[in-house]
Amino acid sequence: MPYSLPSFLVVSSLLFCLGMYTVLTRRNAIGVLMGIELVLNGAGLNFVAFSRFLEPSQTASLLSGQVFTLFIIAIAAAEVAVALAIVLSLYSRMKTIDVEEFKQLQG
């Protein structure tokens, strides 16, 4: 693939969709978490790619895209910490991390 914006966008779409597929089909809670990481990476890659290739504008620095990726990484770190804590806590309570078992919210 050539070194151009669409190639990056295709790669990030792949990351995003594979991540989404992972989230949808995994029964293992940690597997689901991994899928979320993929989705976030896809989004981050998108931001950076746009910040590299887009026409520079007077009003906003293109580096903003990179800053957003930074924020995504920070949020991912927070999310993983909390999510793993929840998973471990569920595991110690229910002796499983099978998301199909977690259905106490059922109506």
């Binding site: 989230v23 949808l24 998301v99 977690f102 259905k103 919210l105 059922q106 109506g107």
Partner: peptide
């Protein structure tokens, strides 16, 4: 309608997708 509320997070996610 209450049968839509399966309680499984993934099913809610399905609706989003």
């Amino acid at each position: 309608i209450r049968h839509l509320q399966t309680g499984r997070v993934q099913h809610y996610l399905y609706s989003v997708v």
